[in-house]
Nucleic acid binder design. Structure first.
Lengths: 305, 305
DNA sequence: TCAAAAGTGTTATCCTTACACCCATGT
DNA sequence: ACATGGGTGTAAGGATAACACTTTTGA
């Protein structure tokens, strides 16, 4: 019986969250004046979805993506109209070759999510305490009493309120919370005077972008993907700046270095780099062999017997 | 220019890897005599993909899925024929309500992946040392010299050879390695006399299933998803048996108990359970509140400053 | 009384965190 | 000389892994 239904057809779209880090700023590749992520339809001539994606991105940036992984597949219900349904298959791409084709298509992540940059001196910390926390407080109070505590807990966990720590990887949860609280313009009941700052994108592309940031921030903690964003050789300081840019958080210098060196993730090239001020730094390169040696991260379960 | 292309259309299929654990055996819901995973086309009347999936699964099992998460989206190139391309959006579903409709549609995971069960007394350990290891050895030797070491490393990491430990979460990597080594029937150049035991499924469903196992084994380590497979109340022994069934590995009893209790994942119900032989065990229930409290797992990066 | 499973306690080890300090360069 | 960033050492605390042992039931 299952095979007898008429098979309906949908449009399949490939969407790319391509990111890089330039001078301590995480950037994402956009199209059409920063309103879109790069995207294009899956074509019959594409051998695979990744190949199709590579084609679209190459046409816009002129270079191959070093690293690509699938993010998530969305079926936007708003677009299930007479024209038919559209399914968006999104990918995360990482690259370090921003300079090849200078372009203003590379936009700072934090233009779209200002609250996500929690480094000191950035917009994030002030934005949370002065704008987001009070408005979420109002949203909590506006709930029926039975639901109030659940809302408060959710706000506290997402934004590190009430003495909780800030968790960089909760990007998507924060975006969805702001959406539900009608504090961002995508929300149906949003009112202009209560919005939280941050540029929006066409359709659900800001949501897809937030999925990409969340994945990258989570993955960086247990898989050596940062190196896809680095040049061939780099200093440990540059590496740390890159990780901090992605995490939106400052890291402890000495421990960061030990973490990287003790795990044998890098090897010295023998050269040094004359930095602005201070002692010249040793240059390192990523030991690509670790990708083969360590398929595995580390278990949380007690092993044998 | 991007908007001007004629949008080609594809078939969108929803595929479910629904698993449960019954009497220490992990099982997966199949259709049509165990050859398929349950699947069905995405319809216009489905409000969302998850809703569509729930519909298909409910029709076959009669109960709702407690937990659903998206797995991966595949575009099988072999099926991009005259009939057009098909995109399969796969989901992982967890349930504990197997008993509602008795059915032989629940098949043991390890019928499809016998090598994945590494518990003592199971087929796995012998299969690896007596069949897989020698045949992979031949595959290594058959490579051109320059490629030989890479193949050996890969085989060693995947199957815990050469003194390495077995990593339960490498399910997909092992499947793909066996595929490339032509040791499973899906492989184009496979020959019947060199195959590794294990039932196959239609199309790429065995591959999708292996993606599901991999995700579940990985996720169980940092997120309390096991409880979706447990009844309302259970003993710590039953919980351990369930985790062991999924991991395909025995766990250390005392440390497992401590891990569960010290993290406040469970609370005692006050009742006890008279087991077969031995002292009666306390019953516990999952503290669902932890899902709200702990959105976060734990960072691998040194935090402040 | 013994087998079987539940449950408790203790110790060695490793990893994370934090702190203190020295080194090499430009100005 | 001193500011700046690079680089090293070490000690405290917590989590994990491994060990030995007691308790409570059914047969």
């Amino acid at each position: 019986m299952m095979g007898r239904v008429t098979r309906e057809r949908v449009g399949a779209e490939l969407v790319a969250v391509v990111t890089a880090v330039v001078a301590g700023r995480p950037v994402v590749l956009t199209a059409e004046g920063g309103q879109h992520l790069p995207f294009g339809p899956l074509r019959t001539e594409h051998h695979s979805m990744q190949a199709g994606l590579q084609t679209w991105v190459e046409q816009q940036t002129g270079h191959r993506l070093g690293y690509v992984e699938q993010l998530y597949t969305f079926a936007d219900p708003d677009r299930a109209s007479a024209a038919g349904r559209v399914v968006s298959i999104s990918y995360l791409g990482l690259t370090n070759a921003v300079g090849d084709r200078p372009s203003d298509a590379w936009r700072d992540w934090y233009a779209f999510f200002p609250w996500e940059d929690q480094r000191v001196g950035s917009a994030g910390p002030g934005l949370v305490t002065e704008v987001i926390e009070p408005r979420l407080g109002a949203w909590v109070e506006a709930a029926p009493p039975a639901e109030r505590e659940a809302r408060r807990l959710r706000a506290d966990v997402c934004f590190g309120l009430g003495g909780r720590g800030w968790s960089p990887e909760l990007v998507l949860q924060r975006y969805e919370l702001l959406y539900e609280a009608a504090l961002i313009p995508e929300a149906p009941s949003a009112t202009p005077d209560r919005l939280v700052p941050g540029e929006r994108m066409a359709g659900d592309h800001r949501r897809i972008l937030s999925t990409g940031l969340a994945r990258l921030r989570a993955k960086i903690q247990y898989h050596p993907v940062v190196f896809e964003l680095m040049p061939e050789s780099f200093t440990l300081g540059q590496l740390q700046v890159t990780v901090e840019a992605l995490a939106g958080q400052a890291l402890h210098k000495q421990n960061f270095r030990r973490l990287v060196t003790q795990q044998d993730l890098v090897e010295p090239t023998g050269e040094t780099h004359a930095e602005t001020g201070g002692r010249p730094a040793r240059m390192y390169r990523f030991r690509r062999a670790v990708l083969d040696e360590r398929q595995v991260a580390g278990t949380k379960l007690p092993r044998t017997r």
